[in-house]
Amino acid sequence: MKLPQFELHRPNSVDGASQLLTELGDDASAYSGGTELLLAMKLGLIKSRHLVDLKPLAELRGIELRPGGVWIGAGVTHREIESSPAIRAVLPPLAGMASQIANVRVRAIGTIGGNLCFADPNSDPATLLSALGARLRARVNGESVEFSPEEFIEGPYQTLLRPGDLLLGVWIPALPAGSAAVHLRMKIHERPSVTVAALVGVTRGEVVAARLAVGSVGPKVLQVELGEELRGLSGVGFSTRVRSLMALLAGSIPLLPERPESPEYQRHLVRLLGARALEAGLEGARN
């Protein structure tokens, strides 16, 4: 499998890149780490004759700790996220999630933006970002627009970006006081088979807020607010309610067709990992 011929463009600004991509239309692709793009081109699934390199664009780089949260440029690699002291301090589950993606070779060049824009349904970041209430900032039709991860990813390999649009970065609000986030996933093949993420907030030992996101099983990330359902609970009461909620959710969540694992087993994993994530979230929020 050889890479077909292509022309590489190196614009020096996001504006320039966007303009180029608009002009070239369907014949061009934005090129970040290339871990998905080049593979898809080798397999003949993407036939772009022009690649517009985003790697040199400083505007897309950088992890910034700002009041109220963290900004991560679309061009930041998983490796940079996993080893960033700022993220490790403020959002340890995000660093932990990044450290589990693929292998070190992919992490060293693959970017968070590339992951989100490729929109492979078997993916980790979108699920955690959804639970964290992150906002994705994109340049759409020349304007800067914000989306939630669930809005941004419309379905398998489908985002709402059109030729010329670019993802700029991700804004992740800091964890509210008294809350904890948990990311769990199960990987059987090269990609995650089930990804779940929970954000749980407590006051005086009792749940005041809870959010669960489930990814990698369905066509897109499913986010559910469970604050109402779990409010005021703790201990056995919490566990019992979590179990029945997860049974309900796992039974009804849409699944991707033609997965190597049976629907029954996938639903089992959703139920299991979802419950584990919520339990761990409560535990974490209390400490």
């Binding site: 199960m186 059987i188 179990r243 049974a247 694992e261 049976s262 087993y265 089992h268 139920r271 299991l272 419950a275 584990r276």
Partner: peptide, 22 residues
């Protein structure tokens, strides 16, 4: 011995609770 096959065998043998709690 894939995870699903092992899990199914455990189900058949009834050695785990249906909820699969650790």
């Amino acid at each position: 011995m894939t995870p699903e096959r092992v899990w199914r065998r455990l189900q058949e043998r009834g050695t785990v609770e249906q909820t699969g709690e650790l």
